[in-house]
């Protein structure tokens, strides 16, 4: 054996000896050492049994797993359970009294009872979390809905304002100040041509023909006056597409050329009013021009008045008949988007 057993190292050999791990030469050497040192030998009664507490633990665990444990099960083997149960507050006053009586009879466990009662932990109040402020949240600001709505409306208004380069610009199809077709005073028989003397324009389609090829398709007529009238506000309109238009046509001339052969009976009865232009003005060019509406006068006012009073309804001087429908419509423009609707005129 390489290592000699002496008083400084014999404990390690003793443990191996007790656990049965010492064999052969080492076992013989250790027994010889014990024979030489009988005072170091351990009596069997000094050895602590390690299995007994395990059994007691199992018994306590079994009871702990039960929903209810009767105090009648109190014994030397189960006393730990009841002592802990008392610490946990699981015993009724009667059970506590019985346990107390049992402890009177078994004073050896009084100390255990006292120690179990001390096993309740208490938190250290000086141990605190110091960063509470950083964790807290600020309450959110509540913005009333009406403010939000107002903001949206203001934003839309701003966008619309910016989208229109010139604040006075109006669409070609309509004038904000001018109805699409004025009742009785400024509308003309709608056969696709305007009849405002020399200062009215046709409204051709892309093929250069009048849109109102059929009598039912009546188009309102707009009356324009060229710019230059300082007393009235000037309106700018984008010019209509006249790429296929050869020349500006006097609507009255065109009306004669067409011969009125396609007119309905109602239209055939109409006598074109004689409107004398204030001055001969050239037809609008193909550029953006400013036009101003010209009020149309009723040349047969006494007739229409008489008829209107008899019929109890307004009378169109062009047809000398009661108005059937008052024209109307709307126009909406947001940026480049234009939406318009026009009711059928007379």
């Amino acid at each position: 054996m390489s290592v000699e057993i002496n008083k400084s190292n014999y404990e390690a050999f003793y443990l191996d000896y007790l656990e049965g791990n010492l064999h052969g030469e080492a076992l013989a050497a250790f027994k010889a050492f014990l024979a030489d040192n009988p005072d170091l030998a351990i009596d069997d009664t000094e050895l602590v049994s390690l299995t007994a507490p395990e059994e007691a633990m199992d018994q306590m665990e079994k009871l702990a797993m039960k929903r209810t444990v009767a105090i009648s099960e109190l014994s030397l083997e189960t006393v730990d359970y009841f002592l802990i149960a008392r610490t946990e507050g699981l015993l009724s006053p009667q059970e506590e009294a019985q346990l107390e009586n049992w402890l009177e009879a078994n004073a050896f466990y009084r100390n255990d009872a006292k120690l179990y009662a001390m096993t309740q932990l208490q938190a250290n109040p000086q141990e605190v979390f110091t960063n509470k402020t950083a964790l807290k949240r600020k309450p959110a600001r509540i913005i009333p809905m009406w403010i939000t709505g107002l903001s949206v409306a203001a934003g839309l208004a701003l966008i619309i304002t910016l989208a229109i380069p010139n604040g006075t610009e109006q669409p070609a199809g309509n004038n904000g100040n001018q109805p699409i077709a004025q009742h009785a005073t400024d509308s003309v028989p709608n056969n696709g041509q305007a009849t405002n003397g020399t200062n009215t324009v046709t409204n051709p389609n892309e093929n250069g023909t009048n849109r109102s090829s059929s009598p039912g398709d009546k188009q309102p007529v707009r009356h324009y006056k060229q710019p230059g009238s300082p007393e009235q506000q000037i309106k700018r309109y984008p010019a209509p597409d006249r790429r296929n238009e050869t020349a500006a046509v006097n609507p009255l001339q065109k009306h004669e050329l067409r011969g009125l052969e396609n007119q309905s009976n109602e239209l055939a009865q109409w006598q074109a009013p004689v409107i004398t232009p204030k001055q001969q003005e050239p037809a609008p060019s193909n550029n953006d021009v400013a036009w101003e509406p010209v009020e149309m006068r009723n040349p047969i006012e006494p007739v229409t008045k008489t008829l209107a009073s008899r019929l109890d309804t307004p009378v169109d001087f062009r047809t000398a008949k009661a108005s059937k429908k008052k024209p109307g419509g709307f126009y909406l423009r947001i940026g480049k988007l234009e939406v318009s609707h026009r009711s059928a005129s007379l």
């Binding site: 702990a64 797993m65 359970y81 946990e88 255990d112 120690l115």
Partner: peptide
Amino acid sequence: ESQVKVYIFRARQALKTYLKDIE
């Protein structure tokens, strides 16, 4: 719940043993 109860009972027993050793 049973596991919790068993763990607590084991813990109390261990704490008591520790206190007894210190005592």
